[in-house]
Amino acid sequence: MSNKKVILVTGASSGMGKLSAQDLIKAGHTVYAVARSVDKMKDLEAMGGHIMKMDVTSEEDIEKVVAQVIAEQGRIDVLWNNAGYGLYGPVEDLSMEKVQQQMEVNVYGVARLTKKVLPYMRAQKKGLIINTSSMGGKIYTPLGAWYHASKHAIEGFSDCLRMEVKEFGIKVVILEPGVINTGFNAGVSQNFSYESKNGAYKRLVNGYIKAMENNPTPGSSPEVISRTVLKIINARNPKTRYLVGRGGKLLVGIRRVFGDKFFDRMMLMSMR
């Protein structure tokens, strides 16, 4: 295909990253799918993708992956910074070690990999960087301070980067998923501060746990993300932001129209 791209995708072992990698391979692109678990990406390799182990918190892993892509392809046309997870719990209770890890993966990992790829994109005078934020980069929920902080950081980071690299022909796009049926909620459950159930914030914490267990929010299919990523890659002049998936436009719109205090009340009521 004449518009075949060399694409590097992080967080490709599950969820929207994996499905999108599959569809990008089917579309004829050269896809390098990376994640901490290579075994979970064997199907991508069978489809013709390139799989590599990469922990976004490891400078050594990032160096190795970028060097191999350049050695084999000579360029990186698209970087999709998609790896991430959600840390939830009261600010007062969460350890700074857990907080640091949240930022290492969701923010500093994006920065590390972006910094390694930019020199090659500048040299070729073109490139596309897609950073996965979230509707959580525009709104907020109780007990999600550090997750939302990481996604608000990605919003600001991406906006500034977009202006810095414009003269080099590099585009920066922010992907803002709403609720998507992926392993994200399982990750939140795994990293949740259950030790807070009997602490000072027990009313809010137990309300949140009850809401997770009894009222799981149905999300959009990951195909919504895959279609959007393909749209961004194929666009000559993509938008700066793509807010897609269940609840995203509604919740962001409610906050924008009715203000923070109304949104606060609505969020707190959902935890009762």
Rank of each mutant, 00 (worst) to 15 (best):
M1F: 10
S2H: 07
K4V: 04
K5C: 06
V6Q: 10
I7H: 01
L8E: 00
V9H: 02
G11I: 14
S13K: 02
S13Y: 01
M16H: 07
G17N: 08
L24G: 00
K26Q: 13
G28Y: 12
T30E: 10
Y32W: 12
A35Y: 03
S37K: 09
K40R: 08
D43V: 01
M47T: 05
H50G: 01
K53P: 03
V56K: 00
V56C: 01
V56G: 00
D61H: 07
D61W: 03
I62S: 04
I62N: 02
I62Q: 07
E63H: 15
E63Q: 14
E63S: 14
K64C: 06
V65L: 12
I70S: 13
I70N: 10
A71W: 08
Q73D: 10
V78P: 03
W80L: 06
N81D: 14
A83H: 06
G84V: 13
Y88E: 06
L94A: 01
Q100D: 08
M103I: 15
E104L: 12
Y108S: 04
T114I: 07
T114D: 03
K115C: 03
V117N: 06
L118K: 07
L118M: 12
Q124S: 08
Q124T: 05
G127K: 09
I129M: 05
N131Q: 12
N131I: 11
S133T: 08
S134G: 03
S134R: 01
K138S: 05
W146R: 04
Y147C: 03
Y147V: 05
Y147E: 00
A149T: 13
S150P: 03
S150Q: 07
A153M: 15
A153P: 13
E155L: 02
F157I: 08
F157G: 04
D159Y: 12
L161C: 11
E167C: 06
V173K: 04
L175H: 07
E176S: 05
V179D: 03
V179M: 11
N181C: 05
N181H: 10
N185H: 10
N191A: 13
E195P: 04
K197M: 11
N198I: 13
N198H: 14
G199P: 07
G199H: 15
A200E: 15
Y201G: 01
I209W: 14
I209D: 05
A211T: 08
A211R: 13
A211K: 11
E213G: 07
E213T: 08
E213H: 08
S220D: 14
S220P: 02
P222W: 01
E223Y: 15
E223G: 03
E223F: 13
E223H: 14
V224Y: 00
S226K: 12
R227T: 09
V229Y: 01
I232N: 03
I232Y: 08
I232K: 04
N234Y: 15
N234H: 14
N234L: 15
A235N: 09
R236K: 15
T240D: 09
R241T: 07
L243W: 05
G253H: 12
I254P: 00
R255W: 04
R256Y: 15
F258D: 11
K261N: 15
D264R: 09
M267R: 09
S270M: 13
